[in-house]
Design a protein around this nucleic acid. Structure first.
Length: 702
DNA sequence: GAGCACTGC
């Protein structure tokens, strides 16, 4: 395809609007405080990335000097004066403002010393690296003054005053103490990402703040930190809390749009990469945003092929795919420098938008597309689909080109198209099943979950669907229109699991299969432990055959886990059997955690000793909402809504035609596929939820 | 008779 490289895409581009730091005006009509800016946006001054920096420095002076060089340092006095007297504040800081690590000023300034200052992060790695960095700056041992808490890892002590934790972790703490009594101050960082946990926390901290005031307890200070200027919603929600702006040190980025809409974004991306490759010095790396593994692998192969046949004098090219399910060792390759005279081209999913920061990127190629979950509240189904990014997301991608120096972003869409993008990504809370969220709120004894004060309210149908699901699982009690948890519901909330999986574990003693259900549920709650490189299909299939169970995928997975344990977690065994050892280790960790919770509840932990019927009965009693039956024509339809479904080709039951199955989830692609199936008796389903099936049969008859 | 974006407890 050499002719593609001959067509210079730059001719189709024209300069567009500047980077966000220039384009954003200050929102009017609110109490706004501009804090002093030290560096000036777009200044050529050297910037140290706040996160990606190694945590230990042999030179304390260097640490201190670097800390002083951050823009926030100059604003320190003003910032403290403001925060000291406020109950709530919104702190906006651009990338590089140093707002997260320097929140230690609060502590230094004597704010929140009465108790612990909590700083939440959407991701584990961020919580850990920030805690490490700040404790280093304070020259203390990690886990003493400064610590962190994430799942499976708690590095805090009684002396810990500044605690970094994942948003999900703080939410879990709120279940046992909804007033968050341990904390004097809660800082919700990266609020613009609007993770489901942060969104629930907005409501939880707001309620805790009000309630503590009413009870005359230690006030709770709430600080919402965000990278975007679009903060009206945040400020309004927290009763008109003032917005404090901190200017950052993002470097200028030149943006180009296409003149015409692109029908084929993959082709456009390919052309752009080679255009840049032929024109720019080879030390400048390229980051391309695509939507998924398949696309990325195909594009990587094409790039390598073309790069082989470029004219003399053209630098060579190192093409690196990057997506979450890529084995860890291969992910790490993106951080290594390319050999001399060679350009690094990273082809990534949106993992490179936030989770992974790569230094040295000069060029970003943004296709404007993303694969994301959409929720249909009518059908209650989640669909994974390729769609347009939001403006916020596009800016985030663009910003990846200006981390160390000025950069360039090629947007493979027109400026008009960009203007029509959604302003913000729809918050996760409006895109997924709310059963877990509702269970957690009920466990916190929120007075009325149906009218809970969400910042962006999910639709009433959406909330009702979750309530209905919890009711079917036996988690809810209705008394005089008041919803409360049953003892079963309360126990379910103790597990870090989807309610139906918690139910499966809690039911397992009845069926004498707790050992097995702990394993199965752990396997289902992490990413797939099976690794299937398409190029080695036959080998994969013959390796899998050994573990295949005629009862279905749950029992097959159980067989694989047992084999893994019998080899003592051997890595070579994993390789031979196409098992992802990293995920398998995680399964073992999850299982240990779940088992601990069972023991604390004094649950007997019994094994079915090879009797798979017990396991299948237990699954029928917890997954009855997801069941399907064989139709006379050989196809399948779901039991409740008679939706046509099919067995996923990856299933152990792909070539079988069982009369009745339960499944873990539906996956929409070309068809509606059931994933992770288990053969059950139709009678068991009826036993599990007679009312549910009676209602459904009645509805079907009418 | 096909194919899973990304987090997190």
């Amino acid at each position: 395809m050499p002719e593609e490289a001959d067509c210079p895409p730059a001719k189709r581009f024209r300069p567009g609007a500047g980077p966000p730091s220039r384009a954003r005006p200050c929102p009017p009509g609110r109490r706004v405080v501009m804090l002093l800016n030290a560096g000036g946006s777009g200044g050529g001054r050297r910037q140290q990335p706040a996160l990606a920096h190694p945590s230990t420095s042999p030179y304390p002076e260097a640490v201190e000097q670097q800390r002083r060089s951050l823009p926030i340092f100059q604003a320190r006095g003003q910032l403290l004066a403001q925060l000291r007297n406020l109950d709530s504040a919104i702190l906006i800081g651009e990338t590089g403002s140093g707002k997260t690590t320097q929140i230690q000023y609060l502590y230094e300034g004597g704010i929140g010393r009465q108790a612990v200052i909590a700083v939440t992060q959407p991701r584990r790695v961020a919580a850990i690296s920030l805690a490490t960095r700040v404790s280093d700056e304070k020259r203390t041992e990690l886990g003493k003054l400064v610590g962190y808490t994430v799942r499976f890892d708690d590095v805090t002590s009684d002396n810990t005053k500044i605690k970094f934790l994942t948003d999900g972790m703080l939410l879990r703490e709120a279940i046992s103490d909804s007033l968050l009594r341990k904390y004097s101050c809660v800082i919700l960082d990266e609020a613009h990402e609007r993770t489901i946990h942060t969104d629930v926390l907005f409501g939880v901290v707001k309620a805790a703040q009000r309630r503590r005031k009413e009870l005359g307890k230690l006030p709770l200070k709430v600080i919402v930190m965000s990278a975007t200027m679009d903060v009206d919603l945040f400020s309004q929600y927290f009763n008109g809390a003032p917005v404090l702006y901190l200017e950052g040190r993002q470097h200028p980025i030149q943006i180009f749009y296409t003149k015409q809409p692109q029908q084929d974004y993959l082709h456009a991306a390919l052309v752009s990469v080679f255009q840049i490759h032929q024109e720019a010095p080879c030390s400048q790396d390229i980051l391309v945003f695509l939507t998924g593994q398949e696309e990325i692998e195909a594009m990587s192969r094409t790039c390598r092929d073309i790069a082989k046949h470029l004219p003399d004098g053209c630098p060579s090219m190192l093409v690196l795919p990057l997506y979450a399910s890529l084995p860890y060792a291969q992910q790490l390759r993106v951080f290594q420098g390319a050999p001399k005279g060679c350009r690094k081209v990273i082809i990534a999913t949106n993992i490179a938008e936030t989770s992974i920061t790569i230094t040295g990127i000069k060029y970003v190629v943004d296709t404007g597309m993303v694969k994301a979950k959409k929720y249909n509240p009518d059908s209650g189904l989640e669909v994974l689909a390729v769609q347009r990014v939001s403006k916020t997301q596009a800016w985030q991608r663009t910003g990846r080109a200006g981390r160390e120096d000025s950069g360039v972003c090629y947007r493979l869409y027109t400026e008009d198209e960009f203007e029509k993008f959604d302003k913000m990504t729809v918050p996760e809370i409006q895109r997924c099943n709310l059963a877990s969220v509702m269970l957690q709120l009920l466990a916190m004894r929120v007075p009325d979950v149906l009218t809970f004060d969400f910042m962006s309210k999910p639709s009433p149908e959406h909330i009702q669907a979750a309530i209905a699901q919890l009711e079917l699982l036996g988690a809810l009690d209705r008394k005089d229109d008041q919803l409360t948890l049953t003892p079963m519901g309360r126990k379910m909330a103790a597990f870090p699991l989807e309610p139906r999986f918690a139910k499966a574990i809690l039911l397992s003693p009845t069926f004498h299969c707790t050992e097995e259900m702990l394993t199965i549920v752990s396997l289902l709650s992490v990413d797939s432990v099976l690794y299937s490189p398409p190029s080695r299909r036959d080998e994969v299939q013959s390796a899998r055959k050994k573990f295949m169970a005629s009862e279905g995928d749950h029992v097959t997975l159980l067989n694989i886990y047992r084999a893994f344990r019998n080899t003592g977690g051997n890595k070579d065994w994993c390789k031979e059997n196409f098992v992802n050892s990293k995920n398998m280790m995680l399964v073992a960790e999850v299982r240990a955690q779940l088992r601990d919770i069972c023991l604390k509840m004094s649950m007997p932990i019994l094994s079915s000793r090879g009797d798979t019927e017990r396991i299948r009965r237990c699954l029928a009693h917890s997954l009855f909402m997801n069941s399907a039956e064989l139709q006379p024509d050989g196809s399948y339809a779901t039991t409740d809504t008679h939706q046509p479904v099919a067995i996923h080709p990856s299933s152990a039951l792909f070539h079988c035609k069982p009369a009745c199955v339960v499944y873990t989830e539906l996956l929409f692609t070309n068809k509606c596929y059931m994933r992770d199936l288990c053969v059950v008796d139709a009678e068991w389903l009826y036993e599990a939820a007679p009312d549910f099936f009676r209602r459904k049969m009645k509805a079907a008859r009418n």
